[in-house]
Amino acid sequence: MAEATGEEIAVGCIGAGKMARGVLGGLLITGKVPAKNLTVSAPTDTNLQYFRDRGCSATHSNAAVVSKCRVIFLATKPHIIPAVLQEVSSAFTPDHVIISMAAGVSLQTLEKEGAVVYARGSCAGQKEADLLKSLLSDCGMCEETPESYIDIHTGLSGSGVAYVYLFAEALADGAVKMGMPSALASRIAAQTLLGAAKMIIQSGEHPAKLRSDVCTPGGTTIHGLHELEKGALRATVINAVEAATKRARDLDKR
């Protein structure tokens, strides 16, 4: 298989909901794949208009996506994946690269339908892995992991976005309680989270060390942290990741 770039590769997505918007929207923003090379399918027009407005092709036919595109993202609800794969499996070729974004769908489930996935099973090679990394590298961190980590990733990152939103909301509400306007509090909360995240990534330090570094003895931060510890924030977040991971695993057992 020859090397190819996003400018040359036709990318498709079966499913047009939030997962599809997140990934394909990132490809469009970064310019990795031009809109004319993107095709998205969904059973109704409800979500397809988002992609049409951005110059992408939209269709109600999953088979049309497979016939036009070499790289296929699966962004449907988990329980629909087997039926979708059965519907279009005869159209797949060894040159297709199939990436599942559905929680709780194992490699075994995908490979039973002859699909190739990035979390590499028996069919996907280094070139397929490199292609996916090339497409998604500008959208955020893109790493290959053992399949056993995928459900944990769902609990940590996939669901973790909602945990962060809840924390940001709580931060802003605290400032509102003390007299700051809501809109300003929300912007400052968001900027605070952004700065903290960049510091973790750029410094390479463990979050515990960074937390310790900003705690002045007797200062405001340690007093605030004490209240968070009394509220069992750490244990609650750990439990949330565990609960979401277990749910992702349960979805695959259906």
Rank of each mutant, 00 (worst) to 15 (best):
G6L: 06
V97Q: 15
L194R: 13
L166I: 07
M141T: 14
G15F: 01
T154Q: 04
T221Y: 06
G231C: 01
E144G: 06
L193R: 06
P94T: 03
K127M: 12
V105I: 08
V105M: 08
D138M: 12
E227P: 09
A183T: 13
V164P: 00
S148I: 12
R120A: 10
P34C: 07
G15P: 02
E227L: 14
A63W: 05
L184A: 15
P181V: 11
D173N: 13
E143H: 09
T221G: 06
K253E: 11
S100L: 06
L85S: 08
A189G: 05
L110W: 06
L28A: 02
E8H: 05
A185H: 12
S57C: 09
A4F: 15
Y50P: 07
S157N: 01
I29V: 14
V105N: 08
R211F: 03
V88E: 05
A35T: 02
A115I: 03
L131T: 09
A175P: 08
Q191R: 14
T192A: 14
V65H: 02
E143A: 13
G22P: 02
S89T: 11
S148L: 14
T39P: 08
V11A: 03
M19V: 10
K32A: 12
I152W: 10
E8I: 11
P34D: 04
A232M: 15
L166M: 08
L184K: 14
G26F: 00
I238Q: 06
L110G: 02
L131P: 06
A175I: 10
V65A: 01
A103C: 03
Q126W: 10
V97I: 15
G26D: 02
Q108C: 05
A244W: 00
D53E: 15
D45C: 11
A240Y: 07
A75H: 04
R54Q: 05
S203D: 09
D151F: 07
S122Y: 15
S100F: 03
S61G: 00
A235D: 08
S106R: 04
L28Y: 00
L225E: 07
E113G: 12
D53T: 11
K230I: 12
T109E: 04
K198H: 13
T221H: 10
L38T: 04
I200V: 14
V164R: 00
I14K: 06
T221M: 05
E128A: 14
A16T: 01
E111M: 07
V11D: 01
C69D: 05
A42K: 02
E128M: 12
V84W: 04
R187S: 14
S182T: 13
A185R: 10
A35I: 05
V241S: 00
G22H: 01
V237Q: 02
V97N: 12
R211E: 00
K253D: 08
S159R: 00
I200M: 11
A190H: 13
D130T: 12
S100P: 03
I14F: 09
L228R: 04
L171Q: 07
L184Q: 13
C215Q: 11
A75L: 02
G174Q: 06
F92D: 03
G31P: 07
Y118K: 12
G204I: 12
Y50G: 05
H223I: 13
I9N: 09
Y50A: 07
I14H: 10
T59Q: 00
G15D: 05
A20S: 05
A103M: 00
S67G: 03
C215N: 08
P207F: 02
A185N: 09
P43W: 03
A162T: 01
C123N: 15
S41K: 01
L110H: 04
A185L: 08
P146R: 06
I201R: 13
S134F: 09
